[in-house]
C-alpha cells in the first residue's frame, strides 16, 4: 500500500476490503430480481394484473401476513422477554427450540402442524371434537402456518434488543412505583421499540413469502388459502409468464410497504 490517501468523500473513506464484497453481495441479491424484470411479459402486464385471481391472492397474502405478524408480536415479544429477562432452567435449550422453525424445511413444518393441529392431530382432534373447529384449509390455517414459520425472526430480534437494553432504566421505573407490568409497558417496550419493529418487518416479509408450510397445512384454494406464493408456484406449472408477473407484484408491494414504513420511522426518530 502507498502512503496516506487524501479522502475526497465518503466513498474514498470506505476501505476496499469492505466495499468489494459489499457490492458483490448487493449484486448477488439484486441480480435475480433483474432477471425477473428482464423476462417479464411487459406487453400483457396490465391485463394480467387486472385479473381478479391476482388481486384476490394479493389481498389474501397481505391480510394473512399482517395478521400473522400481529400474532407473532402478541406471543413473540413476551417469549423474547422470558428468554432475555428470566433465569428459567434450560433456557439455552429453550432458545434453541425457538429457532426450530428456521431450520425445519417449511413443508416439514406444515406436516408437523397437521400432526398437531390437524383434524386428527394431537390438539386438533380435541379442537374438532369439542368446538367443531378445524384449522387446515382455512384462512386461519394460513395465518397459523405463516406465524409458525415467521415467529423466530421476531423472537430473535426482540430478544437481542432486550439484552442490549440498559436494565437500570427498569430499576429506575421500579423506584418510581411502577409494577413489573407497567415497567414493561411504559419503559422496556418503548426502549426496545426499534428492535421490535425490525423484528416485525422481518416477520412480515417472511410471512408474505411463506409457501411450504402454508400449502401443506392450509392447502390451496383461491380466495381462502391461495396466497401469492402459492399462486406463483401453480402458475409456474403451466404459464411461467404469469408466475413472473405474480412474483413482481409481490415484490413491488413488499418493497413499497417496507420502504414506506422505513421512511416513516426515520422521519419520526
Amino acid at each position: 500500500m502507498t502512503g496516506p490517501v487524501r479522502a475526497r468523500g465518503p466513498r474514498a473513506r470506505t476501505p476496499w476490503p469492505l466495499l468489494v464484497p459489499a457490492l458483490a453481495g448487493l449484486a448477488f441479491l439484486v441480480l435475480p430480481l433483474a432477471g425477473l424484470l428482464a423476462r417479464a411479459p411487459w406487453a400483457t402486464l396490465p391485463e394480467r394484473l387486472a385479473e381478479p385471481r391476482v388481486l384476490e391472492a394479493l389481498r389474501l397474502s397481505l391480510v394473512t401476513a399482517t395478521i400473522a405478524t400481529a400474532v407473532c408480536l402478541l406471543l413473540g415479544v413476551p417469549l423474547a422477554w422470558l428468554l432475555a429477562r428470566t433465569t428459567l432452567p434450560g433456557r439455552r435449550l429453550l432458545r434453541a427450540l425457538v429457532t426450530v422453525p428456521l431450520v425445519l424445511p417449511p413443508v416439514v413444518g406444515g406436516v408437523a402442524l397437521l400432526l398437531v393441529l390437524g383434524r386428527r392431530g394431537l390438539a386438533g382432534q380435541w379442537l374438532y371434537d369439542a368446538f367443531g373447529v378445524s384449522l387446515p384449509f382455512t384462512t386461519t390455517g394460513v395465518v397459523v402456518a405463516e406465524a409458525f414459520v415467521a415467529m423466530p425472526f421476531l423472537v430473535i430480534a426482540v430478544e437481542g434488543a432486550l439484552r442490549a437494553a440498559d436494565q437500570r432504566y427498569e430499576e429506575a421505573a421500579a423506584t418510581l412505583g411502577a409494577s413489573r407490568w407497567t415497567v414493561f409497558r411504559r419503559v422496556t417496550l418503548p426502549m426496545v421499540a426499534p428492535g421490535v419493529l425490525a423484528g416485525a418487518v422481518l416477520c412480515w416479509a417472511r410471512a408474505l413469502g411463506e409457501f411450504g408450510a402454508t400449502i401443506t397445512f392450509a392447502g390451496n384454494f383461491p380466495g381462502r388459502t391461495q396466497t401469492m406464493p402459492l399462486a406463483v408456484y401453480l402458475a409456474l406449472e403451466t404459464d411461467p409468464d404469469a408466475a413472473i408477473v405474480l412474483s413482481l407484484v409481490l415484490l413491488a408491494v413488499s418493497v413499497i410497504v417496507l420502504a414506506g414504513l422505513r421512511d416513516r420511522w426515520v422521519g419520526a426518530a
Binding site: 401443506t216 392447502g219 390451496n220
Partner: peptide
C-alpha cells in the same frame, strides 16, 4: 377444500 400442488401432497 384444497387444490393441491401435486399428487403426492394430495395423498398426504
Amino acid at each position: 377444500v384444497t387444490l393441491e400442488q401435486d399428487v403426492k401432497a394430495t395423498l398426504t
